[in-house]
Amino acid sequence: MSTFLRSFLTIVWFGLAAVLIAGLLLWVSSIVRPSKPNREKLLSYESGVDPIGEGWSQSQVRYYIFALLFVIFDVEAVFIFPWATQLERYGTFGLVEMGIFVFILLLGLVYAWRKGVLRWV
């Protein structure tokens, strides 16, 4: 196995340690804590009054559109980062190309803006 994957494996061990610690905390607490549930305690919290209707209420579709927009810009980062580390290698051609790429992406943002997607109220 390469050293590249080796360091990630260390991180996996570290993550397992974190999972173990969290599990240990929950386990210890499950031994020492009291458990006397009743109906009132298990109601979902709604500022002290009895909950009305379903807990899973509908939420605005806007949140979803923001998630979609995010995907565009995050994928863009995947293209930008490798180029950024190799700037000198691709020279002027790379710069112009990246300029065009960023311009098209900004056009997308402007389009979303024009369509009123970025408006909240």
């Binding site: 909950p51 899973w56 806007r62 949140y63």
Partner: peptide, 21 residues
């Protein structure tokens, strides 16, 4: 399965992905 947490989490996700970019 409750209203306040749902609102909070939807807000959180939208906020976090926006600023993540």
């Amino acid at each position: 399965g409750s209203k306040y947490p749902l609102l909070g989490s939807v807000r959180a996700s939208a906020q976090m992905v926006s600023y993540e970019a």
